[in-house]
Amino acid sequence: MGQTKSAIAFDDQNAFEWLDKADDATLDEVHFGVVAMGADGNVVAYNAIESALSGLSPARVIGRNFFNDVAPCANNYMVAQRYLDEISLDETLPYIFTLRMAPRRVRLRLLKSEGGSRRYLLVDTLR
């Protein structure tokens, strides 16, 4: 396989537009975790990296409410509440994700735009 270049960088300024156009196969080429949620917070896309990190397959996750029923580790005011409180959101913050029961330091990027049908949580694991 070698070192393939990620389809898009974690910090890309146009990430939102790019993600909105990307299909599931394209999302799987990204080198960080991508969770796409509908306006109701239910998972609509769960990419390969995120699935490998969590140990949960997309089939198990899609259609469920992400913060309540998939990843309660971020179901607090630092992450989940931000999506509820803010109309548009693009913020990166350090966090601890429980991935396969191990606490992992991650960077989270919270993406939401006014009028957008999907919102995103990007998960980048740190060494």
């Binding site: 990843a71 309660p72 580790c73 966090y95 601890i96 429980t98 029961m101």
Partner: peptide, 17 residues
């Protein structure tokens, strides 16, 4: 090891994230 509830309730009270 840490489960999700651990991160959920401890992170808001954590220093240095």
């Amino acid at each position: 090891m840490l489960n999700a509830a651990g991160a959920r309730i401890m992170m808001p009270a954590a220093t240095n994230a």
